[in-house]
């Protein structure tokens, strides 16, 4: 069974291109527009990995992660931030929520594929 990867970003282009990279690497992509949709997608699917933007309307990436960490069955899903934010406070906050990796946009598809492989093999 292919691993399911959730991509949360409000920019359609980023969503689509990461989706392509994810599928090219042989995984299944689930897309969401914002944190709230992300949580809904988590409920509807068994997600193995999350890539998320921070600045999004309705519910931000940070708010979403805080919710995710509260839910017993989602506690250990690895999360990688996909963002332009480089503020150390934000990174620190994310760290305390168990976010390990920080991928600063812009990046290209090859770089993203490489990252995917490092994370998922």
């Amino acid at each position: 069974m292919a691993k399911k990867i959730l991509i949360v970003d409000d920019a359609s282009l980023i969503r689509n291109i990461t989706k392509r990279a994810v599928e090219e690497a042989g995984y299944e992509a689930v897309l969401a527009n914002n944190g709230k949709e992300g949580l809904e997608a988590l409920k509807a699917n068994s997600i193995d990995f999350i890539f998320s933007d921070i600045n999004m309307p309705i519910m931000s990436g940070m708010e979403m992660i805080a919710e995710i960490r509260k839910e017993e069955s989602w506690r250990f899903i690895p999360i990688v931030m996909l963002t332009t934010e480089t503020k150390p406070e934000l990174q620190q906050e994310a760290k305390t929520l168990g976010v390990k990796a920080w991928l600063v946009k812009p990046f290209n598809k090859d770089k993203f594929l490489l990252v995917l492989n490092k994370l998922l093999g």
Partner: peptide, 13 residues
Amino acid sequence: FTTGMSINAIFKF
């Protein structure tokens, strides 16, 4: 372990 990251991915990589 609590990071959820997989070491097998590293081996494969």
